[in-house]
Amino acid sequence: GGVGPMSGSYAAPKSVWMPAMKAKGLEISGTFARRMGTVYMDLLLTNKALQVMSDFAIQFNRNSFGLAPAAPLQIHAPLAPNQTVDVSLPLSTVGSVMKMDPLNNLQVAVKNNIDVFYFSTLYPLHILFVEDGKMDRQMFLATWKDIPNENEAQFHIKDCPLNSDVSTNKLQSSNIFTIAKRNVEGQDMLYQSLKLTNGIWVLAELRIQPSNPSYTLSLKCRAPEVSQHVYQAYETILKN
């Protein structure tokens, strides 16, 4: 997965989403990534059955951010027993929307020549952080003031021994943009913005104290239910 500042947003290693024993021998591992402005579901399909698998197709249930396959699942040849194939499925974010619980839950159906199988997985919210998420400074100040205090959520990111420059670069490669930085009484205050694919803006204040490995993250958003997931994205990005 891309981790460094030049290689795009962070992608977790693939994990097993559908074990073979629950899908008549078809094992699916996967992860989500954002590359060059496109969201991908990166999949590894393994045939652990005794027969050849063919005629693959994939479909998503409606979900909170309208994620949907942007192309058919391209598996060009039948999958022989013990064979594995890597597939990168581009996703669009203009599919049907239905609020899921948790918000980032995705229900997936996969079919092959044997049967139809279902699994669900959770996607990290940072795959939805768009490249033009740097808010104008004046707009940031006005929006920060305008969003009521009840919509502010505060989190602690523990054991993060990075300085503010390294943090800024890491976050920027996942489309979290620093708009201003101030040093007050020895602590760095970073003011940041990000925008989700559905147009929701999130404003952030990240406090970093030189002697304290725990960061304080304050998030302001008109849709506060995303804040918990944005915090998890910060954790993931800063610690990988």
Binding site: R137, Q138, L141, W144, A180, R182, V184, E185, Q187, M189, Y191, E205, S218
Partner: peptide
């Protein structure tokens, strides 16, 4: 450099958040 007052506004915001 054009002083649009925003630099000062961010300083005030950071200050107010540290010493409310």
């Amino acid at each position: 450099e054009l002083d649009d007052g925003l630099d000062e506004a961010f300083s005030r915001l950071a200050e107010s958040r540290t010493n409310p």
